[in-house]
Amino acid sequence: MSTRVVRAVDVAVPGGSLRVGVWEAGPDAPTILAVHGVTSSHLAWEMLAEALPHVRIIAPDLRGRGRSNGVQGAAGMAAHADDLAAVCAALHAVPDLVVAHSMGAFVSVVFAHRHPDLVARLLLVDGGLPLAAPADLTPDELVAAILGPTAARLSRRFADVDDYLAFWRAHPAFADDWSPALEHYLAYDLEREPDGSYRPATSYATTVEDTVDMNTRDTVRNALDALTTPTTLVTVPRGLQDETPGLYPPVHLAAQLAAYPSVAHVAWPEFNHYTVVLSHAGADRLAALVEEQLAASVPHAP
């Protein structure tokens, strides 16, 4: 668990309120807005917060996830982007950098399109450019094809927190990267049912809606076509099950980078889709890149 204290803030959005985690720093500290992935929460950024003690980090639970899973109404990339703008307004924040993982990267590209005054730079982690999604699938089939057991987990029930942690201990993505911080993140994901069992907090219906939106509609592509924000993409070679290829097979990735040449790209071969954020090594590597990005966003006197 992080030694930094995270402050919980509730921010009103259409349909309810978002839970937002804020790791405070000094009065002159830079601010990053951190946006998590499809079945994640703000605690995905706890290890990054530990690695960046001098940086203020604002990280919401997106609607349908974590303690924001009671928000009513439509989801999709535009709704999440507008929620991020509401978070910035409520906290009087204009981020120096937006850091986003997985689905959060797609949300953040749309955020930059809809609210360009709030996005100085984008750092996208294994997401944000179109995926090689199979065509002609039903929504449930599309979710299964992209997320696999990650989506199936959402309908499972667990006897207790230890049962849930045991499920994740057997997960191939974390075979070499288990930690107390990871356990803290995972335990936060649970909600108790009336019968005493536990279920993941993420809404399956919202997961389907978001997955369909970011893979089959024009919202993300239109935002990418209009992208002028300085943007860096980090990719990793292994996916959600530690499999190869990951979300961006090499040929597909090359085509996407050619289609969006303004997006700078770095590849980190030592991580999978989870451990690039949810391991201390991944968070430390990401923290160093955040430092570089923050330095680049500050104009230097001649």
Rank of each mutant, 00 (worst) to 15 (best):
H171R: 10
Y188E: 15
S179K: 05
Y185S: 06
G196C: 13
A173W: 06
L190I: 03
A181C: 03
S197N: 09
F167Y: 15
A201Q: 13
P180I: 11
A201F: 03
P180F: 10
T202I: 13
A175Y: 04
P172W: 07
L186N: 12
A166E: 08
S179N: 06
Y198D: 02
A166V: 01
D176F: 07
L165M: 03
H171E: 13
A181Y: 02
D160E: 09
A201H: 01
D195L: 08
H171S: 14
D177W: 04
T202R: 06
A175S: 08
W168M: 13
V161D: 04
W168T: 11
P200R: 15
F167Q: 12
A175M: 05
S179A: 13
R199M: 05
E191V: 10
R169K: 07
A181M: 13
Y164L: 03
L182E: 14
A173R: 05
D163L: 04
D162L: 03
A159C: 01
Y198N: 01
P180W: 11
Y204W: 10
Y188S: 08
W168Y: 10
A173Q: 08
L182P: 06
A187I: 06
W178M: 07
P200A: 11
R192H: 05
Y188K: 07
E193K: 07
F167W: 14
W178S: 03
D176P: 00
D162E: 15
D163T: 05
S197G: 12
E183P: 02
L190Q: 02
V161Y: 00
L165A: 02
W168V: 12
D177G: 00
G196T: 14
A181S: 13
L186K: 09
T202A: 15
D189Q: 15
P172V: 08
W178Y: 09
A159L: 09
D189Y: 01
A173F: 06
A175D: 06
D189I: 00
P194H: 06
F174T: 08
